[in-house]
Amino acid sequence: MTISLKKGQKVDLTKTNPGLTKIFIGLGWDVNKYDGGKEFDLDTSAFMLSPEGKVADEKNFIYFNNPKSAEGAVIHSGDNKTGAGDGDDEQVKIDLAIVPANVHKISFAITIHEAQERNQNFGQVSNAYVRVVNEATGEELIRYDLGEDFSIETAIVVCDLYRNGQEWKFNAIGSGYQNGLAGLCKDFGLDV
């Protein structure tokens, strides 16, 4: 049974699902009709963070140009440049059993590629969601629908997976940024 969350809610992931190690994070969205005339390209990124909230190594920043973490714990499915069709637009697979011990949290973001050049923002995006799926069974465990609370933002941190002792938890974040992927990278300790 799927647990539906609202912004700011947290839920146990592994404690309530004993033995769960392989999951994927599915992210999806639709683009509103508007007269800008340019294609929308939304991208998913994962930041593997230290206890201080920073990316310790560039290899711990997973996105379309670096689709796999060094140890293979986090793997990006590839860049969907249109977001057309039903279901997940992009996915990130996670093997919780092999996430390095120095990674305390994995933050997931959606950004708009070339947002400033194309004059695009999340006010033009609808039906955005994130879900956690048990890779072995295909069962959707957690779903967070982001709602329509965004306007000028060009990046959104949608959720975190984080350690709580030996267990993993899920946090529905839904926090918008105006400085796109570059702003997120800077906040997470990366130089771009």
Rank of each mutant, 00 (worst) to 15 (best):
D89R: 08
S45A: 14
M48C: 15
G87S: 08
A101V: 01
D86K: 13
V92Q: 04
K59H: 13
I23P: 02
D41F: 01
G78P: 02
V103C: 03
Q91I: 15
A73N: 05
Y63N: 06
F24S: 05
A97D: 13
L96V: 00
V55K: 01
Q91C: 14
G83Y: 06
D35S: 15
D35E: 14
G19W: 11
H76T: 04
M48W: 01
N60A: 12
L42R: 06
P51K: 13
K68C: 06
G53E: 02
A97K: 14
K105D: 04
H76M: 00
P67A: 11
T21K: 15
K38M: 14
T21H: 13
T21P: 08
T82K: 11
F47P: 00
P100F: 07
K33R: 11
H76Y: 15
E39Q: 12
K93C: 07
G72C: 11
W29V: 03
F61W: 01
D89S: 03
I25G: 07
N80V: 00
T21V: 07
E71H: 04
N80Q: 00
G72V: 12
I62D: 04
N65I: 13
D86E: 14
K33D: 12
K33G: 12
D86C: 08
H104K: 14
L20G: 04
Y63S: 05
A73Q: 03
F61L: 02
D89Y: 01
K93L: 09
H104G: 12
F24T: 11
G85F: 04
A46T: 01
D88R: 07
K54D: 08
P67T: 09
A73H: 06
G37P: 00
G72S: 11
D86L: 10
L20W: 03
N102T: 02
K105H: 06
P67I: 14
I62P: 01
H104S: 15
L20D: 00
K81A: 10
G26F: 02
G85R: 10
N102P: 02
P100N: 08
G83F: 11
A46P: 10
I75L: 06
T82N: 07
E52A: 15
S77G: 15
V31R: 07
K33Y: 06
V103I: 15
